[in-house]
Design a protein around this nucleic acid. Structure first.
Lengths: 131, 131
DNA sequence: TATCTGTTATAGTTAGAATATAACAGATAG
DNA sequence: CTATCTGTTATATTCTAACTATAACAGATA
């Protein structure tokens, strides 16, 4: 796997892991139908507890990113994650809100902020091409 | 004050308070030089502990949003917060990164994401006009 | 039968968040 | 001078989240 956990980070391990798997999907490193390691193997792989991995899998399942076949294993949702609905967008706005407020305070205008967003988008679409 | 804390939220009180003050600055409700309540009065105002308020003031001071005159009180930084530097932008990118990854997974394209950002920006610039 | 899967249960440690109470030093108003 | 305000520091406690550890269970598979 491409997982890289920073145990010193203030960001909880399970959040780091969740983000990296979601980013793996966004970049096309993980495609619908692809298998994910078992909770035990992934846990020993990155040197953490299996419960932490299980927690992440539950969150990803809840988010529609993965499907869990009880005794088969974990698979990236063959249908892909559900499309962004109104609830998702509201949460997204709530997350972006404080970032934009701080950026405005620090003298960034809309254009500068959007440029940064575009850069991040390019990072994903470019790496999607590579594969 | 315009502060509104949700004690039931999973988001820590001190984060909520910090965000709301920063948003107050971004919207022009708080202008450079404006005084902020003392840690004790604001704490009793919103029904929380003075140490929680003090923690927020320390964070805001560290971020350059406010200036603390030991026995006078707390004031919005007369020079305004420092401009966004490279470090700030890197942190901003790190914060936006997982949001964009999740949005891509959920079928949002760059245009849809930028539109939401623009909406949030309008919320600030519009309210800035009101004042 | 042995081994793998996710799942559940229980218990422990550690750290962060929030509160409570108290005290200190400098400034200010009476 | 005294009383009161300011931010600041210290100490202690409570509660929860995050993480780990060990064990067991049920279903599937080789």
């Amino acid at each position: 796997m491409f997982i890289n956990i920073n145990l010193e980070s203030a960001e909880p391990i399970y959040i780091q892991l969740e983000h990296q798997i979601i980013e793996g999907i966004a970049k096309g490193k993980l495609s619908p139908g692809d298998p994910l390691p078992s909770v035990r193997s992934l846990a020993s792989d990155i040197g953490i507890n299996l419960h932490t991995v299980n927690k992440v899998y539950q969150l990803l399942k809840q988010g529609g990113y993965i499907v869990i076949h009880r005794q088969k294993g974990v698979v990236i949702n063959p249908d892909g994650p559900p499309k962004a609905d109104e609830e998702y967008k509201q949460n997204l706005i709530a997350s972006i809100h404080p970032l934009i407020a701080a950026s405005i305070c620090r003298g960034m205008d809309e254009e500068a902020f959007l440029r940064i967003c575009k850069e991040v988008f390019n990072e994903f679409t470019e790496e999607g091409e590579k594969k």
